[in-house]
Nucleic acid binder design. Sequence first.
DNA 1: AAAAGAGTCATCCTTTCGGGTGATTTTTCC
DNA 2: GGAAAAATCACCCGAAAGGATGACTCTTTT
Lengths: 151, 151
Amino acid sequence: MKRHALIFGVVGGLLIAVLQWIEYRFLVIEHSGEVYGALIAVVFAGFGIWLGTRQRGGANQEPQVVEEERETGGGPGFSVNRQQQQGLGITARELEILTLVARGLSNREIGVALFVSENTVKTHCARVFDKVGAVRRTQAVQRGKELGLLP
Amino acid sequence: MKRHALIFGVVGGLLIAVLQWIEYRFLVIEHSGEVYGALIAVVFAGFGIWLGTRQRGGANQEPQVVEEERETGGGPGFSVNRQQQQGLGITARELEILTLVARGLSNREIGVALFVSENTVKTHCARVFDKVGAVRRTQAVQRGKELGLLP
DNA sequence: AAAAGAGTCATCCTTTCGGGTGATTTTTCC
DNA sequence: GGAAAAATCACCCGAAAGGATGACTCTTTT
């Protein structure tokens, strides 16, 4: 995490330099308000990056595509069996793909939903299929349920 | 690393320029600094989030919306929703095939298990897929669970 | 600096699936 | 007995899925 601080500092310094350069070139006359706004912008941009980067995704684009599916009742909450997941070496991205496979989406649809190519989806599928010991996607879904990876 | 800073700086500078151009065009009359700063903050927070998620190649959100469903192995406590089945005109044989599809068997394996040809399995599949409104077997499984036809 | 892990994307090739169509044989029910 | 429903099987064709492999980028770790 020291690396994050370092990068943050470097980026921030460069940004401030750029901003000051811009200010000296064009804005120094009569516009102290913009400098203030720019500083706010920098702070919030950093905050946004921190938000977007931490934990591999707090806010992003695809939830509406995924969440738009109908919700089957309001049963008890499901939580992934993290022991199983880590024991099998299944990454978060692979589990994400497996979840969409279980919802009946095709590889192409998953790619559209997650903004990646169909080939990437196929790669993730192949890996997670191998990890759960399946040779078909329906089998992978069944195995995922048995292993507590899917609701 | 440094390329990021460079891109960030350039893009940020361009954005600031655009914002200021917009201000020159439309906002110069009402110089309410707080609103202006807040707008910049929101825009740049979104920009930062976009940047953050770009590098990470998306994110994984664990969908917490799940269906109520526990016994995954067809354990005790599940009974087929006969109303749904009859309402959709699904025959017993078709439901049988659908059950094996949900277990992850291929058409060939199902044929072997039920002592019929693969072509017959495909015919049953096509019919039941049409009846539950699915175009893929994984989708049919999901629909079957939603409709109370599968555990 | 090097290595490892994760994610992304691509190509080639084979198998499986799914749609459409047509047909024959049971089974069920009036 | 005959109609209707269900089950069975076959063929063709296009699309989807899956396996194998290689490569590139970014991040974290060593």
